[in-house]
Design a binder for these strands. Structure first.
Length: 490
RNA sequence: CGGGGUGUAGCGCAGUUGGUAGCGCGCUACGUUCGGGACGUAGAGGCCGCAAGUUCGAGUCUUGUCACCCCGACCA
């Protein structure tokens, strides 16, 4: 991918990790490790939000909003949770500035020091459970199934556009349940929602699995995840769903009276996906010509480019295109008719390829004569001339075909770099090639840690629907219940 | 915080032994073009990251400083 660039392409694309990912999607901001998401990129994020939200509602969830600031004391109430996040928190210590006495700009007013510092949320478990405490008294108050769309801040030592920015956008679901079974069921249910979204909307195949203790969310008893594989052979954690047990209920003293009139601790889950998914989308499908977007997420699914020599021709094309766009609108296909006179057709072709628009229609004088249109698809870069009659139906089918095709391509790619490895020697060689390695592991954190140190590979997950044939650990020779998934990850 | 690198036009870069700043793209105007990132002509655009120093003279040499990028430690 992205072996070389023409001097022209340089002006339109920024290349990142061998993939076009800044192409009108994002740029670095003036703030360390943060990103500006440009309108085209944000439109993709909005589509993702819409599709996810729809699925959350279908599973009985509602949206709410909780504060950006978390009192420092809240964060220290759950021991594992603090340990996990303490090192990467932005802290608010003052609430006022004043003019610098020496006349050079402003300084922090030392008189305005906060009694208790506020943490900019790295995740909202603590502030939410502090709130839930007041919402929950009886089994009749349960379950609580809330989701919040928000930004969070994690002061990472090293950032990576889309994949690990200091501030990112996400949704975080936080649910409270009367029983362990119900909470576990919720955890798995949301994992399935994420997997469905990734595969059917993003066209990104994912492995569903459970994290090992080492990789578990700070404060969770069990972390479920979906793991995707990028085109460069590295794995990407695309979403997580945590079973939190009663840890946060204990920490924030959230109890309820059950039907037997006994006081019980509440059971919790939390789950989230972030703008990291934008990275997953880009790195799964893009090619040397730019982005390849699945029709389900493309800000516009069809772009129409007129080709003309004079105003008269353009008028004729405008009229013809108006017929088409009315039909597209009627069936809910999103489109853009680009009759901007300041850009040439060739320029537009390249531009919309870079932006990943699934279908491009070109219409010129020749087409008007023949009652045809040229249809180009982004995923295969092929073109054909199609009759103007029944064009809408043709496009509908084509969009479906493209959605399926890019998913299938990703599935095939993943299959081509997923293999079973049985010895540690072989593992050390194979891991250099990237991809998922299915190996036996003795289940101990020590062995996992040793492998990580020696090869930089981590256990991405213990797959939920993997082969459960037992074997022996490739490192220690001790018994193993099933193969787990190793990879180098982002 | 360690190791490496880079700061020169909006973007990407060149700049020789120190002599007063250039290329490509983009931008503006006009004309010809328009079915795969057009071409010609004429333009506009720079405190050479910042600060000291050496020198008749610094983009270039010295010292300091700041910022950003890459590789580690950390992590979704």
């Amino acid at each position: 991918m992205a072996k070389e660039l023409t001097s022209r392409a340089e002006n339109y694309a920024q290349w990142y990790n061998d993939l076009v990912i800044k192409a009108d999607l994002a740029e670095n901001s003036a703030v360390r490790g943060c990103m500006v998401i440009k309108p085209y990129g944000y439109a993709i994020w909005e589509k993702m939000q819409h599709e996810l939200d729809k699925r959350f509602k279908e599973t009985g969830h509602v949206n709410a909003y909780f504060p950006l600031f978390i009192p420092k004391s809240f964060l220290s109430k759950e021991a594992d949770h603090v340990e996990g996040f303490a090192k990467e928190c932005a802290v608010v210590t003052h609430y006022r500035l004043k003019n610098n006495p020496d006349g050079s700009g402003v300084v922090v007013d030392p008189a305005a020091k906060l009694e208790e510092e506020l943490i900019v949320r790295p995740t909202s478990e603590t502030i939410i459970w502090n709130t839930y405490k007041n919402w929950i008294h009886s089994y009749r108050d349960l379950p609580i199934l809330c989701n919040q769309w928000a930004n969070v801040v994690r002061w990472e030592m090293r950032t990576r556009l889309f994949l690990r920015t200091a501030e990112f956008l996400w949704q975080e679901g936080h649910t409270a349940h009367a029983t362990k079974e119900e909470a576990l069921e919720e955890t798995v249910k949301m994992l399935n929602v994420y997997a469905d979204f990734a595969e059917n909307v993003m066209a990104v195949p994912v492995l569903k699995g459970v994290k090992t203790a080492n990789e578990r969310f700070a404060g969770a008893l069990e972390t479920f995840c979906i793991e995707a594989l990028m085109q460069d052979g590295k794995a990407l954690q695309a979403g997580t769903s945590h079973f939190l047990g009663q840890n946060f209920a204990k920490a924030f003293d959230v109890t309820f009276m059950n039907k037997e009139n006994k006081q019980e601790l509440v059971w919790a889950t939390s789950w989230g996906v972030s703008t990291r998914l934008m990275g997953a989308l880009i790195m799964s499908h893009s090619d040397d010509n730019g982005l390849v977007l699945p029709p389900a997420l493309a800000p516009y699914q069809v772009v129409i480019v007129p080709i003309y020599k004079n105003q008269e021709q353009l008028d004729a094309i405008n009229a013809k295109v108006a017929e088409l766009t009315a039909q597209l609108k009627a069936v809910g296909i999103s489109f853009k008719y680009d009759n901007d006179d300041s850009k040439k057709p060739g320029w537009k072709f390249a531009e919309y390829e870079l932006k990943g628009v699934p279908v491009r229609l070109a219409m010129g004088a020749r087409d008007l004569e023949n009652n045809t249109v040229e249809v180009a698809r982004r995923d295969t870069l092929t073109k054909e001339t199609v009759s103007f009659d029944n064009l809408t139906e043709y496009i509908q089918n084509l969009l479906d075909a493209i959605q399926k095709n890019i998913y299938q391509k990703a599935v095939d790619f993943r299959a081509s770099v997923t293999r079973e490895v049985n010895s540690y020697e072989e593992f050390k060689v194979e891991i250099e090639k990237g991809g998922f390695l299915l190996c036996h592991w003795d289940g101990t954190p020590e062995t996992e840690e040793k492998i990580k140190e020696e090869t930089k590979a981590t256990i991405r997950c213990i797959p939920l629907d993997g082969d459960t044939t037992p074997g022996v650990c490739m490192v220690t020779g001790k018994p193993s219940k099933q193969r787990v998934v190793f990879a180098r990850a982002y």
